[in-house]
Amino acid sequence: MSFSVSQHGDVAIIDVEGQLVVSNRQELKQRVLDEVDKGTTKVLVDFAHAGYIDSSGLGVLVSLAKRIRETGGDLRLANLNEDLQTLFELTKLDTLFQISETRDGALASF
């Protein structure tokens, strides 16, 4: 389980490797907030290499989206596999986030 941060133009990209769960959600939150503190307003979380997400992980994404939207920016998601898509649909969080099928599609959407 790890997170890596990269920059593409003015978009900060967070790659999630493995699970996003109660034991590591604070690490993701801090990584994103570090980028926000540097002035980043566009954040993409890429789940191409992610495992499952629990309610704590979903909660952190909601929390970060609220925070970033307050600054006029947005947090968007890409590469949800079928299982993660199910999770977002069950919780209706697919209506809260802009979700792209690919990283390029998400980057182009900003």
């Binding site: 909660g59 909601v62 609220k66 919780t91 209706k92």
Partner: peptide, 21 residues
């Protein structure tokens, strides 16, 4: 947690997910 007033909450999805899954 899918109700309009709850969708932006950071918590409250754990038991719901257990029951759905």
């Amino acid at each position: 947690p899918t109700a309009a007033g709850n969708i932006m909450r950071e918590d409250g999805r754990g038991l719901f997910l257990m029951q759905k899954l």
